[in-house]
Amino acid sequence: MAVARRLKQPSWRDARLLIGILLVAAAVSATWQLVRVASDTITVYAAAETLVPGQKISTDQLEKIQVKLPENAEKYVSANRDWGAGIVALRPIYPGELIPREALGNASELEGRMLAINLESSLPDGVRPGSRVDVWATPRDGAGTDQMAKDSRLVLEAVTVLASGGLDNALGSDGQSRIELFVPSPDLPELIQVLGRDERISIVALPGSKSP
Rank of each mutant, 00 (worst) to 15 (best):
I117N: 00
L98I: 13
A47M: 05
S78D: 10
L69D: 07
A46Q: 08
V37A: 10
S78T: 13
T50D: 06
V127E: 00
V52W: 05
Q55I: 10
P92N: 02
V44H: 01
Q33S: 11
W83G: 08
E71M: 09
P124H: 03
E74G: 14
L115T: 05
N72A: 11
S122D: 09
A48Q: 07
E109L: 14
G105P: 01
R128C: 08
Q55E: 15
S108E: 15
A79C: 06
E49H: 08
R140D: 13
G112P: 03
S39A: 13
G54N: 04
Y76D: 05
D141I: 04
R81E: 10
P92K: 00
L90T: 06
P70L: 10
I93T: 02
N118W: 07
V88T: 08
Q61M: 11
T43Q: 09
R132P: 04
G105I: 02
E63F: 09
A38G: 15
N118A: 12
G126L: 04
L115R: 07
L69P: 02
V77F: 07
D40A: 14
R81S: 12
A103I: 06
Y45G: 01
N80R: 14
V44Q: 01
V37K: 13
Q55S: 08
E102G: 05
A79M: 06
R113F: 11
L34F: 11
E120N: 08
T50A: 05
V77R: 10
I42C: 07
R113E: 12
P139W: 10
P100C: 10
G86H: 13
S121N: 10
W32R: 09
W83Q: 11
A73L: 04
R132W: 02
N106S: 15
A107M: 12
I93V: 11
V127W: 01
L123K: 00
R91W: 04
N72V: 15
R101V: 08
L104Q: 02
P92Q: 00
N106L: 15
E102F: 09
K56I: 14
T43D: 11
P95D: 02
K75T: 10
Y45T: 04
G105C: 04
A38S: 14
A79I: 05
E120D: 12
G105A: 05
Y76L: 08
A48E: 00
D60M: 09
P139G: 07
A103W: 03
Q33M: 06
A85N: 14
Q55F: 06
G112Q: 04
D141L: 07
Q61T: 08
E97A: 11
A46E: 12
Y94L: 03
E49P: 05
P70A: 15
A89N: 05
Y76A: 06
L98V: 10
K68E: 12
A47S: 13
E49S: 12
V77T: 06
T43W: 07
R81P: 10
S39I: 11
D82N: 15
R140W: 09
T31G: 14
R91N: 08
L110V: 06
D134L: 01
D82A: 15
K56Y: 09
P124W: 02
V44D: 03
N72I: 11
G86I: 13
P129R: 00
D82C: 11
G142N: 04
D141K: 02
T41M: 15
P92L: 01
N80I: 10
D82S: 13
A116L: 13
P70T: 14
L98H: 06
G126A: 07
D60W: 05
L90N: 00
E111T: 09
A48H: 08
W83V: 07
